[in-house]
Design a protein around this nucleic acid. Structure first.
Ligand code: MN
Ligand code: MN
Ligand code: ZN
Ligand code: ZN
Lengths: 143, 143
DNA sequence: GCAACAAATTGGAATGGTTCTAAGTAGCAA
DNA sequence: TTGCTACTTAGAACCATTCCAATTTGTTGC
């Protein structure tokens, strides 16, 4: 059994409990929405999707829950330039490809070997805790 | 003589003229400020530094001129998370190291060989026009 | 079950970097 | 000069996000 990198909906309650937090209907439906369509939605897009199931939820709660999911390491917040923050359930180390044509975001798998090479360009004294790699350009609708 | 990658103040007028734009005192002093202290200042920081020489300049003009310098490829705009945009006169391809302790930004030189390896992880159909690499962590005040 | 307490949600106001707008100023061309 | 355009300016507007105070919900101890 390898390390868990993309949790299931069931994992949510456990992960929240581990952090001393409650599993709430709002947190559940938001996490579910993010797992269901992995297109790196913004908070507004999450809000729109969640309201289909839960019309009374507030935008403030969407922001609060997304922050909670990020804190619990169930979701990653990713930023491109100064555009609205997007949310990604892919917990593997990966790069992002931003298609300028369509605005869509694609995950790019990164070999561990390459990650190591990249980190090795840091001069002595630099200790990187995280690494962010973003491509921008044109992507074929291949598939 | 190698390709120009970090222009001098003198290059400004020429580069502006090439784009059909005028060299103005505001553009000159802003570019000069960015060349003088290469610490990736924000627009506000540029504003504060420029006002020492030119107290009557407006913040709107600072934003306008920075945008112009970016368009003319004399300066690069760099973003970290959703923090205020920073401006960098280093035109070589390079990565950024964000020191969480001090908030300072350090340029990290990237071997061409590595850039090639990174781009080669893109699947067929992906055509990247730009690549952004950001480290985050602790940096020694070495030197 | 019930009271007390803590955690979470909510609507709306506030924040802050950036962009927009409309008016004024400055440089260039006939 | 006169006209034309580019540029600068102050302040308003924008908008993603955060903050706030009030309410609701869940949990714990009895
Ligand atoms: Mn982007
Ligand atoms: Mn940063
Ligand atoms: Zn992703
Ligand atoms: Zn730089």
């Amino acid at each position: 059994m390898s390390t868990m990198t993309t949790a299931s909906p069931d994992a949510l309650a456990q992960r929240l409990a581990d952090s001393g937090l409650r599993s709430t209907p709002q947190r559940e439906v938001i996490y579910d929405v993010i797992l269901r369509k992995r297109d790196h939605p913004t908070a507004d897009e999450v809000y729109a999707r969640v309201r289909a199931d839960m019309p009374s939820i507030s935008l403030a709660t969407v922001y609060n829950c997304l922050e909670t999911l990020v804190q619990c390491d169930l979701v990653r917040a990713v930023n491109f330039e100064r555009a609205p923050t997007r949310y990604c359930p892919n917990l593997h180390p990966h790069a992002h490809f931003h298609d300028e044509q369509s605005g869509s975001i694609h995950d790019i798998q990164l070999p561990a070997e390459l990650l190591e090479k990249i980190s090795s360009v840091l001069p002595a004294g630099y200790d990187a805790k995280s690494l962010q790699i973003t491509f921008r350009g044109k992507a074929q609708p291949a598939a």
